[in-house]
Design a protein around this nucleic acid. Structure first.
Length: 280
DNA sequence: AGTACAGCCTGCCTGC
DNA sequence: TGCAGGCAGGCTGTAC
């Protein structure tokens, strides 16, 4: 499940291969039910609007990848739960679940692979009205300056939701999903079902610091490839942060810190793993 | 307005 | 053995 650290890693891997390159063509498999484009008028228009354009820059915002295209277009990708972006030379046999290929100059391809089809592609044109994606609604980047302790304290103190749910709310703070919310809360020793506004100031301060520290460490380790093996970075390799996971997918196993059995509950329709002894 | 939740999707695992 | 059912969780839309 690509979250902020995984998308950041993919972005960094892709940049040397794609920035400054011309998109010569875009192709899709002959599947009429392709969903990644369901928000765009037509597949053909998507293709013709990109042919011959150039990728000026590649950025990440939350879990989105944003390709700034010349002339005046923005190509936005979301990998959903199971999406991968792989750099391949033309002629390499297609991967299973290949959903789209962006052909670049020099016989290089960006391949969008996605078994579960939660991934999406967006193309913003100068004429786009009512664009279905509003990135400005996203909350601050947790590693950016706007994610201040004052901001975070304000958000927490006015929310009656469980803290795990709040951490995963992209409007509160952008880029955190199920894996990192579990890991952050364990590291901050906070129970995932605590109501946000009940957190003490020192807990909020610790949580704020732990969010940044955990995400930085995960980026340094090039993301988490969980047991499903689905996340691969832009060069097709696995991440390393899975070896540092303390609670995610460890239910029934002993806590590394205190030996208590890691528990799992459902919070907001999602599984949450935590140590019932360490996390209060 | 803030919050909760169903639904989309499909490979994999469990239990009968 | 085979199959049904549950689970995984990104996000949006809808309802309370």
């Amino acid at each position: 499940m690509p979250e902020l650290p995984e998308v950041e890693t993919i972005k960094n891997d892709l940049i040397p291969y794609v920035v400054g390159k011309t998109i010569t063509n875009v192709t899709f498999p002959p599947d009429p039910k392709i969903r990644i484009l369901r928000r765009f008028p037509s597949q053909n228009k998507f293709i013709t609007e990109l042919q011959g354009t150039k990728i000026k820059s590649l950025q990440r915002r939350a879990k989105y990848l944003i390709f700034d295209i010349q002339p005046s277009r923005t190509l936005i990708m979301h990998l959903g739960m199971s999406g991968q972006l792989l750099i391949r030379k033309a002629g390499v046999p297609p991967e299973p679940y290949l959903q789209a290929i962006f052909h670049l100059e020099n016989a290089t391809e960006i391949r969008f692979v996605d078994p579960r089809k939660f991934g999406e592609l967006f193309l913003k044109l100068p004429s786009s009205k009512d664009f279905p994606l509003n990135l400005s609604r996203l909350g601050p980047e947790p590693l950016g300056e706007s994610f201040s302790l004052i901001y975070f304290t304000t958000v927490i103190q006015k929310s009656r939701r469980k803290i795990k749910t709040l951490l995963m709310d992209q409007k509160a703070v952008a880029g955190i999903g199920n894996i990192y919310s579990d890991e952050i809360l364990f590291r901050a020793k906070i129970h995932p079902e605590r109501i946000a506004f009940g957190l003490k100031e020192r807990e909020i301060e610790l949580l704020h610091r732990t969010i940044r520290k955990t995400l930085r460490e995960a980026i340094f380790n090039r993301g988490t490839t969980a047991s499903d093996g689905r996340y691969l970075n832009g060069t097709g390799r696995r991440g390393k942060f899975q070896t540092k996971l303390k609670v995610y997918q460890r239910q029934g196993e002993p806590c590394y810190r205190c030996g208590a059995i890691i528990r799992r509950v459902r919070i907001g329709g999602r599984s949450a793993s935590f140590c019932p002894q360490c996390q209060k």
